[in-house]
């Protein structure tokens, strides 16, 4: 057989094996859709707010990327809203939050205000958090989305949702 054909067939075979391996053998994982740019309108009820929060938590905010038992890079947040009360009473706490909701807000927009022991950036003795502030570039949540995430965390922990919904407030006022 012609050398050229032999070499060409050999190369095609190698490429074929690599392709087959990547397409058939390794598990097919479909990447997530890009997160939606804007929240679809102002949430009108607590349920909608919590739903938006869950969406942001898993999507645009990318919180679950680190706050998961698999990654183990950041504290788990199932109980965060519940233990926030105790966090601000701890002696190491130097932040400005006066209640649980404010603590959550502070942790989102200024993660280094208080770092849960053991979760600081390497070599900083837990003074600097590796977490980016959620209002900054790569994540860039707006005020509604931050509120929604706090509401979601409160719902998750089973405590009362203290975030007020604009629409709900006006409705009550009208009554």
């Amino acid at each position: 057989m012609n050398n050229f054909i032999k070499v060409a067939l050999f190369s095609l075979f190698i490429i074929g094996v690599y392709t087959l391996y990547s397409v058939k053998i390794i598990p097919p994982i479909t990447p997530e859709e890009p997160p939606k740019e804007e929240a679809s309108g102002q949430p009108a009820t607590v349920e909608e707010l919590v739903a938006l929060g869950e969406q942001v938590y898993n999507g645009k905010g990318a919180c679950a990327l680190c706050h998961s038992p698999v990654a183990g890079r950041a504290p788990l947040l199932e109980n965060a809203a519940l233990i926030a009360e105790d966090r601000i009473k701890e002696r190491g706490y130097k932040g400005k939050a006066a209640n649980a909701e404010e603590y959550l807000f502070e942790s989102l927009v200024d993660p280094s205000a208080y770092v849960v022991p053991g979760f600081g950036a390497a070599g900083t003795k837990d003074t600097v958090s590796p977490m980016p502030a959620v209002v900054e570039s790569a994540i860039g949540l707006n005020r509604t989305e931050i509120d929604a995430v706090i509401a979601y965390l409160q719902q998750l922990a089973g405590v009362e949702v203290t975030i007020e919904v604009e629409g709900l407030k006006t409705e009550e006022a009208a009554r």
């Binding site: 690599y18 990547s22 097919p28 990447p31 890009p34």
Partner: peptide, 15 residues
Amino acid sequence: DAFTPSIAYAAKTVS
């Protein structure tokens, strides 16, 4: 086209 393609799609393209 903003979505991230899967590995299989990329592998076929690269091939």
